[in-house]
């Protein structure tokens, strides 16, 4: 690998790491829950990019499918149920 390519990859790594930390900080502030959940999905996708850089393509595939996709769907449906409870249309909890 030429030094030029190594420097470019280093710049990419730095950008990726700073983006990850910034997204994590923003989503953990918890000002707006919907925004936090959407940022969490974006965080999962960025994380799978980091796994590729760490030479772990299997983990990247699992993270993109499970960590970002399914966890995001779970969080969104839980948020939707919370909101419906808050709006009061749903009185009796089914149990």
């Amino acid at each position: 690998m030429s030094p030029w390519q190594a420097g470019l990859l280093l710049a990419f790594d730095l950008t990726l790491v700073l983006t990850l930390l910034g997204v994590a900080w923003q989503l953990l502030r918890g000002v707006n829950l919907f925004r936090s959940v959407v940022l969490f999905i974006a965080f999962g996708l960025l994380l799978s990019l980091a796994w590729v850089r760490l030479q772990a393509p299997d983990v990247a595939l699992a993270e993109a499918a499970i960590g970002a996709g399914v966890t995001g769907a779970l969080l969104l449906v839980a948020l939707g149920r919370l909101r419906r409870m808050a709006s009061g249309r749903h009185g009796g909890e089914g149990s």
């Binding site: 790594d13 730095l14 790491v17 990850l20 930390l21 994590a24 900080w25 989503l27 953990l28 502030r29 918890g30 829950l33 936090s36 959940v37 969490f40 980091a50 850089r53 760490l54 969080l75 839980a78 948020l79 919370l82």
Partner: peptide
């Protein structure tokens, strides 16, 4: 770089877990 990022992500998570009151944010 990635080691430091992992440590900082862990610390960010711990801080939010303690400070933020909402349970959904705690799960995040």
């Amino acid at each position: 770089i990635y080691l430091v990022c992992g440590a900082l992500l862990f610390v960010l998570g711990v801080h939010a877990l303690v400070v933020r009151p909402h349970l959904l944010v705690k799960v995040l």
